[in-house]
């Protein structure tokens, strides 16, 4: 017994969104999908290949290595940036004239264009003329990020920490300032230690913003390209070739469009999957 009148005209209201999403996401994505399942030799001549490229990418050592490097990089910077960001936010003043000074200083690295960040750190770290590289070497530390994988990794991580810890700081600081003063008073009356205040009041109250901070840092670090291509270009050798750099080498360096398209899709779904798992876990935690 359905008495509803169904008006077909209602669909018209959805059309703008459909068009927007189509042009914005679906159509560009479909061209990649197109390449991922076919072989082409130019002139718009395509041969159906099925899942060949996917199998090839997923079975290649090259992809495995890049993926492992990527996981390692993201894990390291998350492990450094999140605790460091919280620590800095905790030590920032809550009121007074220094608040704005601190906030501006914190926001500065976020305002610099990404390729400039890469160029800055490249020059800064150069072993012969860069301030960092030259100082380290004159202190007797053998450092050359253009030749030693370990030096390259250290520089890459240092650069990312410098560039992005601020984001965690700003989010954590926003979470901290939202805690009413009365909580701290109540904790003092209970005789809570600084650690207890952090563990039982500040951390639980910061949970939401930290979830967002971790999620953002995960996604951005998993897709890092610009700063890195300027800093190391993936070298020395392949030691800092993370997923995005590997993908560009494959697509534009070797012009293997099929495998590159397949890899793009795999890459995309990995990011999507991890974010989804992460978010669901966090939200489930929240509900309990």
């Amino acid at each position: 017994m359905i008495n509803k009148t169904i008006r077909q005209s209602a669909w018209l209201f959805v059309v703008p969104v459909v068009l927007l999403v189509a042009f914005n996401a679906l159509i560009p994505l479909m061209t990649v999908v197109n390449y991922a399942f076919q072989e082409t030799f130019g002139d718009n001549v395509f041969f159906w290949e099925g899942l060949t490229w996917f199998e090839q990418v997923l079975n290649s050592d090259r992809f495995h290595d890049a993926f492992l490097r990527q996981i390692m990089f993201t894990s390291i910077i998350l492990l450094i940036e999140v605790p460091l960001g919280i620590a800095i936010a905790l030590s920032m003043p809550r009121k007074g004239p220094w608040v704005s000074v601190c906030l501006v200083l914190m926001a500065l690295p976020l305002l610099i264009p990404w390729n400039v960040v890469g160029a800055m750190w490249n020059i800064f770290a150069l072993p012969d003329i860069g301030l960092l590289g030259y100082s380290l070497n004159s202190m007797g530390i053998d450092y050359n990020f253009t030749q030693q994988p370990i030096s390259a990794w250290a520089t890459m991580i240092l650069m990312d920490v410098w560039h992005w810890t601020s984001l965690v700081v700003l989010l954590a600081y926003a979470g901290l300032t939202a805690i009413p003063e009365a909580y701290y008073q109540a904790a003092r009356i209970d005789g809570a230690s600084k650690w207890a205040v952090f563990k039982w009041i500040q951390l639980p109250k910061m949970k939401r913003v930290l979830t967002i901070a971790i999620l953002l840092r995960f996604m951005d670090s998993f897709m890092i390209y610009t700063e890195l291509i300027v800093l190391t270009g993936g070298g020395p050798g392949n030691s800092t070739t993370l997923l995005s750099i590997d993908l560009v080498k494959l697509a534009l360096g070797q012009f293997d469009l099929g495998p590159a398209a397949a890899m793009s899709l795999i890459y995309f779904f990995i990011v999507l999957l991890i974010c989804w798992v992460f978010y669901t876990l966090m939200m489930k935690n929240e509900k309990q």
């Binding site: 009413p180 009365a182 909580y183 008073q185 039982w200 009041i201 639980p204």
Partner: peptide, 9 residues
């Protein structure tokens, strides 16, 4: 207090 102050989790 006027605000409801409890240990959040």
């Amino acid at each position: 207090y006027q605000e409801f102050i409890n240990y959040p989790n």
